[in-house]
Amino acid sequence: MNSKLIQLEDLGFSYDLGKTETIKGVTLDIPANQVTAFIGPSGCGKSTLLRCLNRMNDLIDTAKITRGTIKILGQDIHASDVDSIELRKHVGMVFQKYNPFPKSIYDNVAYGLRIQGEKNKSTLDEAVERSLRGSALWDEVKDRLKTSALGLSGGQQQRLCIARTIAVQPKVILMDEPCSALDPIATAKVEELITELRKEYTIVIVTHSMQQASRISDRTAFFYLGEVVEYNTTETIFQNPSQQQTEDYISGRFG
């Protein structure tokens, strides 16, 4: 089971109660402890699919799963006894635009634990340190944990968001273009971090950068118009794609 942490079967999703499908029958198995990249032209539904995985789309009134199932750890996440709140504690998310709360660095990292009712100071301290170390930020911020998170640089803020996510110890981390607002140096740091995190977490990342996908991911899925065109190991996708469309896209001749 560990090899298929997330299983999508014929998943269909619509933003307008089923009138038009944005995701049209996606079948994918995402293995544990690997980095899986979603690539594809703008508007093909990568973010939408990613947000299906932690049911963030529930927040949109007219969003609807039209067909198929998503299983995480073997459990159908749309089963009636699944609470989306509990699900999100296991499936964390990092957003494109880094969005730390305008609170202190410490409070940002402790947020997830605090809402779970954790009050014990030493437990929180420990978790904050562990998460900040885990996101390679500890040495940079350990002397100013109580200062506002907004005083950090963009790259640091994004790594803080990752720290915030791993503080609740999810199984899966979803990342939607985590580096698109960062400069190359900050990007390199975040990529390094992602490679590191793979040991403990399963990561699904959306990216527009082919180089990034090939550098950090183990498997890559190429999407086009809400469908998976090709899904394979990153090596195969980039060196020996079976579909013409995939080859055109990654070589930049397309969309």
Binding site: E86, R88, K97, N99, F101, Q116, C161, R164, T165
Partner: peptide, 10 residues
């Protein structure tokens, strides 16, 4: 973003 981040943390 604040809302989304909060929801995403459970």
């Amino acid at each position: 973003g604040f809302r989304e981040a909060s929801y995403a943390l459970g």
